[in-house]
Each structure stands twice: as C-alpha cells, then as structure tokens.
Simulated assay, not measured.
Amino acid sequence: MPSSHDPRSGLGRRALLTGGAGAALALALPSGPAAARPVNSARPFGRHGSPSRRPDDRTLYVHPGGLGDHTGVQAAVDAADGPGWTLVLAPGTYRETVFVDAAQAGMTWIGATGDPRDVVVVYDNAAGTPRPGGGTHGTSGSATTTLRADGFTARGVTFANDFLRTDLPGNPGTQAVAVKVTGDRSAFFHCRFLGHQDTLYADSAALSAFARQYFAHCYVEGDVDFVFGRATAVFEHCHFRTLVRPDLTGAPYGFVFAPSTAAANPSGFLASRCRVTSEAPDGFYKLARPWVPSSDTTARPSLVVRDSVLGPGIDAAAPYANMREAHPWQAQRFAEYRNTGPGARITVPENRPQLTADDAAGATARAYLGDWEPRRFRAGAET
C-alpha cells in the first residue's frame, strides 16, 4: 500500500493536480515534448500570439491571472459562438467543468507551451456526487470536460478528474470521467488524461453514429475501465498507466479497456505501437473486459492491441475478463498482434486470440479512420 506521499495516491496525488503548473510537473509525461520548459511570464502564450497580436478574429486567449481574453476555459468556450474557434490556454490549473456544444464544430485547444503538464483542466465530480438540484451526476455527468462538437482538436493539454474514492465512502458511484468525447473527427496530440475509474470516455452521440477519434503520443492513467466507450478510437504511440488500489488487497485491481462497440460498427478501439505500464504488483491488471450496456444489449465490443509493449502489470495468462457472464469476452471482438513484453506472453493460447497477418492488414489507423486524416502536430507545429 502506498504512503500518503505517493504522487498518485490519496491526497498527495490531488495536491499535485491542484497545485498549479509547477506542481503538475511532477506527474508523468507521455511520449512527446521531451522536457518541461520554463514558463515565460512575459509571453504566457508563447509563439501563439496574444490578445494584442491576434492571428485572426477567431482566436481567444485564456489566462488564469487575467492576461488573456478570459480567465476560465468555459468562459472562452461560451464566447466562441459558432464553428472554427481556437483557444490558446496559458499555463495554469483550471478547476472547472467545461462543455463544448455540438454547434461549436472545428474547435481547437492549444496548450501554450506544448507541454501538457503546464495546462491542467480538472474537477472532482463522480457518478455518485450529489447534484445541487437533487439526484447524482451519473457517469456521463461526472465528466470534467464534455466534448460534443465534431472536428475538435487538442494539443498539449491535461484533462483530469481528481475525485478520490475516499470522498464518498461507501458510495458505489465511483466512476469519475476526465473527458467524455462524442464528436466525429476528434483528435488529441500530446495530451494527458488523468483519473481513476472511467478516465477517458471515447463515445459517440448515438448508437448509429460511429464517431472517429484519434489519440497520438498521449498518456492515460487509471484503474477500472479507464478507456471505455463505443467510439471508433485509434491510439498510436500512447502510454497507458495502471494505478495502485489502496482500497483492495488482491487482484484484479482493474481493466485498461472496456469498449462497448455497436454490433454494426466494424471498428472499435485500436491501440497500435503503445505501451502499458503499472505501479501495481505484477499481474494485478487485466488488459480489457467487454462492456455491453443496458442501452445496447446487442453491442459487440471490439478491441485490437498490436505492436505494443505490455508490462508485467498485465495478467499474461488471463488478460481478459467478463463484465457480465451473459456477455463473455470470448463472444466479442478482442484480438492482439505482435505484442511484446512480460504482459504479452502467450502461456494459455485460448486466452489470447491473435490476428492473422491478413487480418492485421485491416487493423490500421487508415482503415479505422477512413477518409479522415487527422491534422498532425509535430514538434509544436501543425502539418
């Protein structure tokens, strides 16, 4: 069991998230920008202009100290009426919930430094948290950030939910979403997603809408089902980190993926050239379990993990489990291809379905995303 000073446990971890950009530097950084850069207080928006040097009339600047157009992210979102706006976020911790409506298509959020540790959007609602008007938030309502617009793009931003199970002792509503994204053509580059249960909700607006989402060089951490939903979601060069569970004494601690792909959707989650690490004991995590929700009992969850490194935290002998016995994982669309690492060892072949080379040729970002090619952000520049 970790001490109270463990940066990812209890109040110690929350303090790092809420302590501002400087404290956030202590948290893990995904593959991407190599090192945290000193923040230039004279140029808080870096190379992205300023309210006095605006590149166009659809760019807004957010600064917690008042040096931008707005001090909060939601205030800037509210001011961005219609499609095609860009928000440049200065370093800081933005403790608020944020909602981007479907009418705000093509919105872009840019962390001013390019380093996701510098810009943190965080709140602490959970599914079981009481709402001011009565009732509780529920899983979707717990999201710190809700993104419904098509064509949303973010670079260099941390999306976090720092709810702790000890905040609601005995309450089973511990799902606490950092971001729920339902828009088609949503892309995230060099971003972080921090939470515990249900961190990243990659979903769609309706059962018939096969939203496409792309995550590149991102870092995602959590414990139970912390990447879940029914979107067609591609993860490339991403780092998934499983956390310790001070509230449990034995395995399993949780599950990385919990897709709920609609049966009619040929493509669910794809993790390619990623890695899974853990701060928990060896074998204490499952790679995935299928989520067949009551709202779609015909769902056939789909997950492919390929060309990735699975650390010893993954149970190699039995990497998959059932969420409900009525929907066994063997009846779903789970498969792997050319994975390496201790958690990828094939010791019980029937527990690790593998793609053939022909099948793997169709399990690529291009095949999953179709005619959409996400805008690429490389070395701080968009291409």
Rank of each mutant, 00 (worst) to 15 (best):
Thr108His: 09
Ala326Thr: 14
Arg324Met: 09
Ala160Ser: 12
Ser50Asp: 02
Gly20Leu: 09
Tyr285Phe: 13
Arg333Phe: 03
Phe189Gln: 06
Thr340Ser: 15
Arg345Lys: 07
Asp124Leu: 05
Asp307Lys: 14
Ala205Met: 11
Arg155Gln: 13
Gly195Lys: 05
Thr242Cys: 15
Asp6Val: 04
Leu200Asp: 03
His63Phe: 01
Met1His: 11
Val119Pro: 05
Phe240Thr: 10
Gly68Met: 00
Tyr214Glu: 08
Asp371Phe: 07
Val62Leu: 06
Gln74Glu: 10
Gly134Leu: 14
Gly370Thr: 02
Leu25Asn: 11
Gly183Phe: 05
Thr145Ala: 10
Gly222Lys: 08
Cys238His: 09
Pro51Asn: 12
Gly10Ile: 05
Val220Gln: 02
Trp291His: 07
Pro342Glu: 07
Gly195Cys: 11
Ala160Met: 03
Ala326Pro: 01
Val244Arg: 14
Val227His: 03
Thr199His: 08
Arg378Gln: 11
Gln330Phe: 06
Ala160Ile: 02
Arg58Gln: 11
Arg273Tyr: 11
Val88Cys: 04
Ala264Trp: 03
Phe284Glu: 02
Ala288Met: 05
Thr145Phe: 06
Val122Asn: 14
Ala263Lys: 09
Asp78Trp: 05
Arg230Cys: 00
Ala264Leu: 04
Ala321Tyr: 07
Ala271Phe: 00
Arg47Tyr: 05
Asp101Leu: 10
Thr129Cys: 10
Leu29Lys: 14
Thr71His: 05
Ala379Asp: 15
Gly134His: 15
Leu16Asn: 04
